[in-house]
Design a protein around this nucleic acid. Structure first.
Lengths: 80, 80
DNA sequence: AGAGCATTATCTGAATTTAAGATAACTGAA
DNA sequence: TTCAGTTATCTTAAATTCAGATAATGCTCT
């Protein structure tokens, strides 16, 4: 297991998060503020340098206003 | 963000993973083998000592035969 | 073109997490 | 109680992640 960074699903996850942040009209700095984190945190997340855990994903869905189970559905269709 | 370990959602996630592994009739050792990991890896996961990332969650869903988007739906209902 | 501003990416130690592998503890059946 | 199967914990090395700063990139306006 261990290395999920850079897999097709991970890349798709990132793309989804970026798209959702942009759709919400937020900058990395603004999202970071909502999360109580630095902008570099969001940058590392979105540049694939850091894994996204399940609980964080749910928080992000809440903040960005997307449906986590629908998003998961999309991701699950991607070939691992 | 950062600390998602031990949150209500994290505990629920773990409970779900354990239930699904048991429903699949697998021991930690057997699941570990499928994952290419040690039994202690699964133990740490299930005892809440390690975060579960989104991509791993999808892999686990595949191996344990559960629907990740349905599982996510359950988790998302839990108060954060 | 370029000045200025907003936005995103990268860098550097330090702190935190994670892993391997072994061993200990627990559980239940005979 | 003993034994086998299963799960939990320990140790230390390795890998991630972080804070905070700075650099790079991209707009927009003139």
């Amino acid at each position: 297991m261990a290395k999920t960074l850079g897999t097709a699903r991970h890349r798709a996850l990132i793309a989804l998060l970026i798209a959702r942040r942009e759709a919400a009209g937020l900058t990395q700095t603004e999202l970071a503020a909502k999360l109580g984190e630095y902008q570099s945190f969001v940058a590392r997340l979105e540049s694939g340098q850091r894994r996204v855990d399940v609980v964080e994903f749910l928080q992000l869905a809440g903040l960005l206003g997307f449906d986590p189970h629908e998003a998961m559905d999309q991701l699950s269709r991607i070939q691992e």
